[in-house]
Write a protein that binds this DNA or RNA. Sequence first.
DNA 1: GCAAATTTGTTCGTATGTATT
DNA 2: CAATACATACGAACAAATTTG
Lengths: 268, 268
Amino acid sequence: MASPMHQVIAQDLRERIESGELLPGDQLPTELELRSRYGAARNTVRDAVRSLMTLGLVVSRQGQGTFVARRLEPFVTTLSPGPENGLSGTEGDDAFAEARRQHRRPSASVPRVETLLATRGIADELGVPEGTAVIVRRQERYLDGQPWSLQTTAYPMELAMQGAMSLLMAQDIPGGTFAYLRDTLGVAEVGHRDLIQVRPPTDDEARFFDLADNGRVAVVSCMRTGYQDTGEGPAPFRVTCTVFPADRNEFRISSGQVPPAQPAPAEG
Amino acid sequence: MASPMHQVIAQDLRERIESGELLPGDQLPTELELRSRYGAARNTVRDAVRSLMTLGLVVSRQGQGTFVARRLEPFVTTLSPGPENGLSGTEGDDAFAEARRQHRRPSASVPRVETLLATRGIADELGVPEGTAVIVRRQERYLDGQPWSLQTTAYPMELAMQGAMSLLMAQDIPGGTFAYLRDTLGVAEVGHRDLIQVRPPTDDEARFFDLADNGRVAVVSCMRTGYQDTGEGPAPFRVTCTVFPADRNEFRISSGQVPPAQPAPAEG
DNA sequence: GCAAATTTGTTCGTATGTATT
DNA sequence: CAATACATACGAACAAATTTG
């Protein structure tokens, strides 16, 4: 009963959206209209609309109006190994294959490569001393031309010293680094471990993914450490961090015996 | 240069927080102080502080002040099967074991049980017709007395008809439903598939997890479909949805050969 | 191409309510 | 009860982006 006016207005608008009275893409009443409809000040209706924006239910554009948000078609990334190969869908060619299965057109920027000294976090994951030289390869990845994910992979410089010089080249490695390291050095990934975190985007990430009100849409960070077999147990040799905006990505993990394929979602 | 005043103020405060000048738990200057410090109106400094709240950097409490947010100690849930058993850490006794390994004290509410007719979503996952009778068991789960996750599992009513009557009882099933179904009906889970989504909390979820400004902190929803072996391939027999607040939970997934244990994080 | 109208964004000022100390 | 601090609400003016005539 004692709810603040802006909450009441927000709740009312929310019900009109969720009931389907206002459809995605529809324009909400203007602030002037809402002001007279609810007998409230403009700042008050703006507070109400702002809370709907925080929920991602509406978006407003200066000079145009406020509109019911369109739901983004989620893209599903598989984090567990597929039955046919030992890979999974976050990285390289395999990510591309999964994207095409979902009828999306994947693309990626030319990799940017830098060499630096391992920070504490990277060193811990790679099992090397802090300050060890590492190669970092970065890529922006797109789906249907829209920003999809940011990927950063760190390898010990050691791998290049041993002959994997292509790691240092700022260009795609045909067939993927996975196959390249196996064929060049016999370094084969026999397992990996993912750590999934959800957090607010950095400014860079918000800019790349075009996340307007900074902080509203979270990002999912997937840090994958890849292991090779050394004869004395698995040892890490690369760590990849892939960052996805949470509002348009989902993740799938299979374990044990499950049906082979997922039924394709109904499309209009 | 042309940045709005509230953004400039927010950026300045943000830098003072991230540089360590203001430590977690410290009180920010009051709105009155900020107003005179930046020569801005109170509404303007409030806008600035609000954006820091959206980022989760500060929390404000009426009558007290605004404080730099304390980082929550993340809890790590393992989504992949462990080496010793065929389970993984989201559910039942296994979740409890994982919590204790991380030196947390887990607890859970007595299950609430209801029977209902499967909605479209549940029916699709269970591979039964829409409207089929299902048993739904719900639990609130806590870590060190703090709300941790909400778990809802749906089973076909068929399982109770075949003798698994405990599914209908609003009480814990000793040893877990996993073992119960195996021992009672020979229904053993041979695999499962997870779908992980990140979304704003519902009102119920925001209330349970005590997420203040509704919509700021996302929740991670993990929907796990469990499969049994029917001789004609795996068939689904249960679907569990576990919901975690994103600001205090992380997830780990292993695949292939990886080192057995994770080094315990350094503690102060 | 330009000017006017429309709509949201920013900023100011003020007053009162509510929770905490 | 009083003081403090954030929450809610009203009103007003101008800026910036977009659409319309």
